[in-house]
């Protein structure tokens, strides 16, 4: 990446530095900046951007990188959130949770609840992917949406856990040596999680697996002609994405101390897609830029008018039409 950067003309190098350096500094020192400005609310906004960037990155892996347009990705995020919240609910109400023949105790321990949540999201992605990936194109989009809607209505029907109104979580998950209820700690934890995820995705993209996935998006017939059956690779990619989405859900419920069916609705899925489109489809930094733009834009317009979507929608259309590579395209020079 550095080699690629150095091979660029000096003008582009300066442009990238001018864009990236302040952003990196802001991300690294956000807690101090907002402390000095006495604006703790904005630290929460910054954390929210990071968590949404993580969720959007997971979608970007299948949609941007793998070319699988999933319209129900919020479901996997929501499953991650619900599992953590439900386990915490049973812990604080001291009611055991019975799952058919198994009866388990609730827990607020992150070391237990988080892996369970991530596994649940991963397993759902694996099952839904196994069925959806038998189709492609428009059918794939519709089937992922249908599954997500099923999970949405299932969440609505969970009366014990607040049904339509959603459920509160009394405190954040407990991790050894980390106090997540401290907002600065939480921010850095989210930042580290996102950084790790992006490093993982960066490596994945260049690996043997990544080349195959990208090849399938570019030309599926070519991959078959090389002796590569696309299905198992696509399913693995979808499952990995589900796991990352579940982790984003774990962080989201800890940030908000609240989860409701809205968190796994189709509206949330489309928000994630919008973030990717704004940031740059298939690019590593796209989801972060897109999440930042989306959440700050929503916040900014929201203070001006209740009818913010009326202005936000057209802005999105303009970006998609005129900056096809998204915000990333403004910093990184395009192909000639």
């Amino acid at each position: 990446m550095l080699k690629k950067l150095l091979s660029l003309p000096i003008k582009h190098r300066l442009l990238i530095l001018a864009g990236v350096a302040p952003l990196a500094l802001l991300l690294a020192f956000a807690p101090f900046v907002f402390e000095v400005l006495e604006q703790p609310f904005y630290l929460r906004v910054a954390s929210r951007i990071l968590v949404f960037a993580l969720a959007a990155s997971s979608l970007n892996l299948v949609l941007g990188f793998g070319g699988m347009v999933s319209l129900g990705h919020a479901a996997f995020v929501g499953i991650g959130s619900y599992v953590v919240a439900i386990l915490a609910w049973h812990a604080s109400n001291e009611v055991p949770l019975s799952l058919g023949p198994f009866v388990i105790a609730g827990t607020t321990d992150g070391l237990v609840a988080w892996p369970v949540a991530i596994l649940a999201a991963m397993l759902s992605a694996c099952i839904i992917g196994a069925i959806s990936l038998r189709t492609s194109g428009l059918y794939f989009i519709m089937i992922t949406l249908a599954f997500a809607q099923m999970i949405y209505y299932y969440a609505v029907s969970l009366q014990q856990y607040g049904g339509d109104d959603g459920m509160r979580m009394r405190g954040r998950s407990i991790l050894p040596g980390l106090d997540l209820s401290n907002r600065t700690t939480f921010y850095y934890f989210a930042l580290a999680s996102l950084a790790l995820c992006l490093i993982f995705l960066f490596c994945l993209a260049r690996s043997r697996f990544g080349l195959v996935i990208s090849g399938i998006r570019q030309n599926e017939t070519r991959m078959r002609a090389l002796g590569i059956e696309p299905y198992p690779y696509q399913l693995t990619c979808f499952t990995i994405s589900g796991a990352i989405a579940g982790f984003a859900g774990v962080l989201m419920v800890n940030l908000d101390s609240f989860v409701s069916p809205a968190d796994l609705s189709m509206a949330r899925s489309s928000e994630l897609i919008a973030m990717i489109l704004i940031g740059g489809v298939g690019s590593l930094w796209g989801p972060l830029l897109g999440a930042g733009f989306y959440i700050l834009g929503q916040l900014g317009l929201g203070t001006l008018t209740t009818y913010w979507p009326l202005f936000f929608g057209p802005a999105l259309i303009v970006i998609v039409l005129f900056a096809r590579r998204g915000l990333v395209g403004l910093f990184v020079p395009g192909r000639s």
Binding site: C203, S207, F209, V212, L226, I228, Y233
Partner: peptide, 21 residues
């Protein structure tokens, strides 16, 4: 290189850079 890679067996290798292998 993808053709060579495909012949070399499955591609469930997730981390090592394959582009300069």
């Amino acid at each position: 290189a993808l053709a060579v890679q495909a012949r070399a067996g499955h591609s469930f290798r997730f981390l090592r850079n394959a582009q300069n292998d």
